[in-house]
Amino acid sequence: MVAYLIRRLVQAVLILIGVSFVTFVLLYLVPADPARQIAGRSATAATVESIREQLGLNLPFYEQYWRYFVNLIQGDFGRSYIQKSQVGELIAARLPPTLLLMAAAICAELVFGLTMGVIAAANRRRIGDNLLMIVSFVGVSAPQFVVGILLLYLFAVKLGWFPIGGYGTAAHIVLPALSLGFLGAGWYSRMMRSSMLDVLEQDYVRTARAKGAGRWRVIVAHAVPNALLPVIAMIGIDIGLFMSGIVVVESVFGWPGIGQLAWQAIQRVDIPVIMGVTVVSATAIVLGNLLADLVAPFIDPRIKLR
């Protein structure tokens, strides 16, 4: 276990270095000029050049990246060009809302998705199976902003059960979490159904049935735990995606998360913020996958970490 953790952590560090380098290259090649945006349209060429020199944007690429990398390994994400604040502080301020929404959304998609997948597999090729797969297909296909607006209109505007937007109470998180959970539930239900169908054909399931175990006891006690492995791996990926990829939902509901911070930074070519959010999101994906791998042996003892 220790050797496995060391090896995975070394791999994680190399991956994060690669992500930071590739992202830095792409931002370096962007034709927009951050110095010009900071200075404003009416600024003189001398003013723009002075800002570029202060920010180190006049240095060769390798020097710019080396300076950024040295600061990064010391925990310094740099300073926002636009907001004039430390990127680490900006991300830290947006992190709690993002983590809260991420946890609620994952819970929502697991509850609905796994339930739908298990019921569909238990009723294979029946009406219930077909109906649930249609619902999952709609969930996978529906745009997030459409789902968010519909939920907002129905439950906030018409029924008044939840606030229209904002952040601060438990009621504020329900609709954003359901919007994200509806999309994720579609993927999880299809994956769980496929995994369940494979497990239900295994010999140990037939043996349990032959011994007289009830249908749902076989499904819940024997099939479901062994069908969860692909789901666990997907949760690790979702952690990283929800860290930065929920811009639309955050915008619809006015949720002050990292995704909205990243979108604002992209619009303004605020390179330090874009780099910071990218590195944090990549770290979340790597750690999420590592956590999924570590949990897998507890679900299935046959899996060995090597």
Score class of each variant (00 low, 15 high):
109 E>D: 13
172 H>N: 02
147 V>D: 14
138 V>Y: 08
123 N>E: 05
154 L>C: 04
180 L>Y: 12
157 V>W: 09
108 A>V: 11
184 G>C: 05
86 Q>G: 09
143 P>G: 06
92 A>N: 04
109 E>S: 08
104 A>S: 07
182 F>G: 06
135 V>H: 07
131 L>F: 15
149 I>E: 14
133 M>Q: 12
96 P>F: 01
149 I>W: 12
157 V>D: 01
165 G>D: 00
151 L>P: 08
110 L>F: 09
118 V>E: 10
116 M>H: 02
179 S>Q: 10
114 L>D: 10
88 G>Y: 05
152 L>I: 00
134 I>F: 11
171 A>D: 14
156 A>V: 00
129 D>V: 03
178 L>C: 14
187 W>A: 13
123 N>R: 06
161 W>N: 02
166 G>R: 00
115 T>P: 11
168 G>A: 04
91 I>H: 01
126 R>D: 10
132 L>F: 14
177 A>Y: 13
104 A>D: 07
187 W>F: 15
185 A>W: 13
168 G>P: 04
110 L>Y: 06
164 I>W: 01
106 I>A: 07
107 C>A: 14
154 L>E: 05
102 M>K: 10
142 A>F: 10
174 V>C: 12
91 I>C: 07
93 A>G: 04
177 A>W: 13
155 F>D: 08
157 V>Y: 13
127 I>G: 10
107 C>Q: 05
163 P>V: 00
177 A>K: 04
164 I>C: 01
163 P>S: 00
165 G>K: 00
154 L>N: 02
93 A>Q: 08
164 I>A: 07
189 S>A: 15
176 P>C: 09
128 G>L: 15
148 G>H: 01
